[in-house]
Simulated scan of single mutants.
Amino acid sequence: MFYKPIGPNVAEVRNAISLYRTLHATGGQAPIWALAENYRFEPGLLKASDLVRDLGDMMAVEVIVELPMEESNPYFSSSWRRDSSFPGGFMLDGGVHFTAGLRLITGSEVKSVMAIARHVDASLPPPDNVSALLQLENECAGVMVMSYSSRTRKVSWRVVGSRGTVEVERGINNGQHGYTVTHCPAKGSPQADFFPFAGVQEELKSFVKDVAKVVFEGKSSTEADQCSSVVEAFRDVAVIEAMLISSQTKGGAVQVEHHT
Rank of each mutant, 00 (worst) to 15 (best):
A212P: 02
L124N: 05
S79I: 07
F41K: 03
G27R: 07
M146P: 02
V145C: 04
P185D: 00
L55N: 02
V61M: 09
Q29C: 04
A11K: 15
S108L: 08
S246A: 06
Q176W: 08
G252A: 14
S85H: 06
V52F: 07
K47A: 14
T180V: 05
L92P: 00
K213E: 09
D210P: 13
H183D: 12
R14V: 04
V231E: 15
V168G: 04
A60E: 12
V215Q: 10
R81P: 00
N173G: 02
G56P: 13
M69N: 01
E42A: 08
G28N: 07
R82E: 03
E70D: 13
R103W: 00
A242E: 00
H119Q: 12
N15Q: 15
Y20C: 02
H119L: 08
K213F: 12
S147I: 03
T180Q: 10
D193L: 13
S220K: 13
R158Y: 02
L19I: 11
S18H: 07
D50S: 10
M146K: 03
G56I: 11
N38F: 01
G251I: 12
E37A: 14
F86A: 00
V215I: 14
G171C: 08
L67Q: 07
V230K: 01
S228K: 11
T26M: 12
R118F: 13
E241S: 07
V168E: 01
N38L: 10
V120W: 09
A198W: 04
V13H: 05
F234C: 03
S123V: 05
S79Y: 08
V166Q: 04
L244C: 05
L55F: 08
K4L: 11
R235S: 00
S150W: 11
K4S: 05
F234W: 05
G164Y: 01
E137L: 10
S112P: 07
T152C: 03
F234G: 01
P74W: 00
L19V: 13
W80Y: 15
G27Y: 06
T249E: 09
T22L: 10
H258L: 15
P5I: 09
R151F: 10
F98E: 01
E109F: 14
S189F: 03
Q29V: 08
V231M: 03
T152V: 14
G89P: 02
V239K: 00
S72I: 09
A186H: 07
S72V: 10
A224E: 08
S18I: 00
S112Y: 06
S123F: 04
H259C: 12
P74D: 04
